[in-house]
Amino acid sequence: MTIAKRFYGEGLPGVDPASLNGKLIVLEGADGSGRSTQTALLTDWLERRGHAVTHVGLRRSELVGEELAAAKNGNVLSPRTLSLFYATDFADQIENRIVPALRAGFVVLADRYIYTLMARDIVRGAEIDWLRSVYSIAPVPDLVIYLTVPPQQLLERFIYRGRNLDYWESGMDIGYSRDWFDSFIRYQTDLHRVFTQLQREYGFDIVNGNRSRQAVTRDLQARIEAVVDPPEEKKG
């Protein structure tokens, strides 16, 4: 069973959807939900099985990565400008990393995807309609996994690792509260609500991330295996 790789919208100028033979697998979830750990474990597992893997994430483009980092530190851009900056960064990665890798038959592991970008903006009051159109340039993934961990649990993980709360991940720019912890809980709760909304439209697999690392890995592997090594495509 081969599903032709499609785009959410009209696609990208000059890109033939039929040429995208690889697999695109997306891991979504809050900071502290175990995305990075699982990505590393899944990479080992996939490579052991003979799959070539490439990674993409947010804010990693060569095009505007620097400017975006600077803008975030300065907090001088309007929400719309910041939103478009992220879209530029992401479009650059779609065209210069994701599409070439899919063309070459790679498994692309995306540490977050357009849904995080959309959810962040929706929580800040953006129209979903506008975002849906902006991100219609994105290829439809073969699998989207949303790792859920309750906000309280995320906080405990942060504290346990001796990490400070991040200004943006705590939604401090939104102005829920001057208290970081309070703001964090409310922001993450809102994000989760929006993700649940997006799930209905875009169809994610919701995976409970509030379990042992091994249990989560096994769960993810089973779902990914069904996509990258479906029984009828296995050779020898």
């Binding site: 990208l12 095009l63 851009l77 309007s78 400008t81 478009l84 879209a87 530029t88 650059d92 065209e95």
Partner: peptide
Amino acid sequence: RNLLTPTTFSLIHCTDFADRYER
């Protein structure tokens, strides 16, 4: 680096425009 595509060209200019528009 020959990185700009029609889509990123469009988005980067829109980012710039949005900044000017809202400011």
